[in-house]
Amino acid sequence: MIPLTIETDIVFWICGPLMVAGAFGLVLFRKAVYSALSMAFVMVNLAALYAAMGAPLLAAAQIIVYTGAIMMLFLFVLMLVGVDRADSLVETIKGQRVWTALAAIGVAGLIIAGIGHVAAASAGLDSANEAYGGNVQGLAAMLFNRYVFPFELTSALLITAAVGAMVLAQHARLTPKKTQAERAAERMEAYATAGVHPGALPNSGVIARHNSIATPALLPDGSISGESVSEVLLGRGAIVDTPALSALTAANFAGVAAELEGEEPPVPPALDTGPKPASLEGATPADTAELAPESGASDAAVEDEEESK
């Protein structure tokens, strides 16, 4: 029982301020994910305090259940709803902040006034823990004797909560699923009215060393087809610059053709003759940097849009 040997005061004076700081972080961070991390930080500190106060089982449960399970659940949901969005901290309700501060201080003061003056010395848990040979054994004895009925009830609660979460999270289909015939009819309708191309969209491009879905197809005149890549990638500008890639190949082909005709091959613009992986790899970072130059800016734009909503 190592945690128990640590002097409680030391732990308190270390963990307490950290917890307060973490709690303020939870409230003040603009990004929810930082708030969640602050919360996890508070919980870990709390676990340490538990351990120091003679509750090692609770300390473990605090870390496993709260920090491990609950906070991770929060993070999952955060990722579902957009992990990197920063909240606006502008208050919209008049007087809410002032009154909230007053109420929070009032409630805290009330608690301190109400229960903050217990007997100066605590009885300590030593005798209680020793009765069953340890804290864990003591808790087990209580849970499975005096508190066995509430304990069983919690199982009912948990299973109900699990079922409820499944029911709530299930996506209910509001309209019947469209059949293939209906989809085809819609497509022809769109073609007839708006002239939308009814056939399959063009595949993404296949260039010598790039066949990812971020590679647009080339049209016969050498320009790219916007429809061949995902709209999302297109919107972010995160597509491979195919003309730039194909330019090298085209130059090589042109050189080969000239050689065959007995002429001096023209020197490729950026590279020596022959494929050179290093040079290509050297080119890739430049490409990617060039390809997605404004990703951060566009993200910010999206966020601004959402905030303005």
Binding site: I93, Q96, T100, A103, G106, L110, A113, G114
Partner: peptide, 24 residues
């Protein structure tokens, strides 16, 4: 009745405070 959950929470907190003061 603003429909704002946070306002309701504030009312509740103030209420808790007042009731607590009364009890004490």
């Amino acid at each position: 009745q603003t429909g704002q959950v946070r306002s309701y929470a504030l009312f509740m907190a103030v209420g808790v405070f007042l009731v607590g003061v009364l009890v004490i």
